[in-house]
Design a protein around this nucleic acid. Structure first.
Length: 348
DNA sequence: AAGACGGGGCC
DNA sequence: GGCCCAGTCTT
């Protein structure tokens, strides 16, 4: 069995759950330990929604969106009945817009089948639900013995086990190790506890080992430098692309376009732009003939490149024929951040 | 296995 | 300017 090869983590679940009872984060979508103990369970819709929303998203940034969505669409059936543009607009500013497209697709599948599936394997088949989210929903909403391994859990275990190998390979080791540790009782709280520990104690910088319930089990702590972990590969430098954004106004309205579903900012409302290219600003034809003035430059950083928009503005007495939709200036909403920045620069 | 895919806060 | 965050999907 090679037991000696592994740290002895048998006591981890009990230590962690005892800690969680006293230090659980109070989150809007969560049923706390006291209420869980008397049998209360969270609404699967809210669990699913928060898990999708918080993917690669900080809690402070995502929380207002959670409130907005649950107030506007209190049930999965209500969300399933929403229009695509409404949901995309409500998601604007949260990023990773494929999540919003999959959210709606998933809501419609779930509403059609009469509710959420309850097992990890079935949940995994839903659009936008990957290994982490399937485990989280199964454990938290349905008390299934499933693991939810997110970035917090990866970091906690990288330190617990002092993992020094290739990070992609070590993450697989972690997933398997966590799966072995999920307790039959309270699997949902185990998942929440592990994430809370990573978020509040075993933090990326300056982990607070003095208050950690797992410090006695931690190999990185024993080595004396937990901050060294996890050891990840260096990231490639981001190239800079250049583009031109056009703010065309007429009669108190502005011309907006809908981006295609696939690709960057897919399905989102946008300003007309041409190609975004490396090197220098491209020769992009404007959406209409007008007296264009340059109002400034907007910089924005995406996941794999940085963007510089030259922002052009023009106003025409009569609306020209142009592709897109005209939207009242005061009613402009639902723009991704980069376009919101450019629009604001041109209209203030 | 490697890239694409947002955005904001923090150092 | 780089890192991180309740990751997933595509190629």
């Amino acid at each position: 069995m090679g037991r000696s090869k592994h740290a002895d983590l048998n006591s981890l679940p009990d230590r962690l759950l005892a800690w969680y009872e006293r230090h659980a984060r109070d989150l809007p979508w969560r049923i706390g330990p006291a209420n869980r103990a008397v049998g209360e369970r969270p609404d699967p819709y809210r669990v699913w929604l928060c898990e999708i929303m918080m993917q690669q998203t900080t809690i402070p940034h995502g929380t207002p969106y959670f409130f907005k969505f649950t107030e506007r669409w209190p049930t999965v059936e209500a969300l399933a009945a929403a229009k695509d543009e409404e949901v995309m607009s409500a998601w604007a500013g949260l990023g990773y817009y494929a999540r919003a497209r999959n959210l709606l697709k998933c809501a419609r599948e779930v509403a059609a089948r009469g509710g959420f599936p309850e097992t990890e394997a079935e949940l995994r088949k839903l659009p936008g639900v990957g290994p982490y989210t399937a485990g989280a929903i199964a454990a938290i909403a349905f008390d299934q013995v499933a693991a939810a391994v997110d970035g917090n859990v990866d970091r906690v275990f990288a330190r617990l086990l002092a993992l020094k190998g290739d990070w992609a390979a070590e993450k697989k080791v972690i997933a398997e190790r966590v799966r072995q540790l999920v307790p039959e009782e309270r699997p949902g709280e185990f998942a929440e506890a592990l994430m809370d520990l990573g978020a509040t104690v075993c933090t990326p910088t300056k982990p607070n080992c003095l208050t950690c319930p797992l410090s006695e089990l931690c190999a990185a702590r024993a080595e004396g430098n937990p901050e060294r972990y996890p050891i990840k590969p260096a990231k490639a430098a981001k190239p800079v692309r250049h583009g031109i954004a056009y703010v065309l106004q007429s009669k108190g309205e502005v011309l907006l376009v809908r981006r295609p579903d696939k690709g960057l900012l897919g399905g989102m409302l946008a300003l007309p732009t041409g190609d975004w290219v490396e090197g220098d600003f491209p020769e992009t034809p404007p959406p209409a003939k007008a007296d264009w003035e340059e109002v400034g430059e907007v910089r924005h950083v995406f996941t794999h490149f940085a963007l510089r928009f030259k922002v052009m503005r023009a106003e025409l007495a009569r609306r020209p024929k142009a592709d897109g939709q005209w939207v009242t200036l005061n009613a402009v909403e639902g723009l991704p951040s980069v376009f919101a920045k450019a629009f604001k620069l041109a209209t203030k």
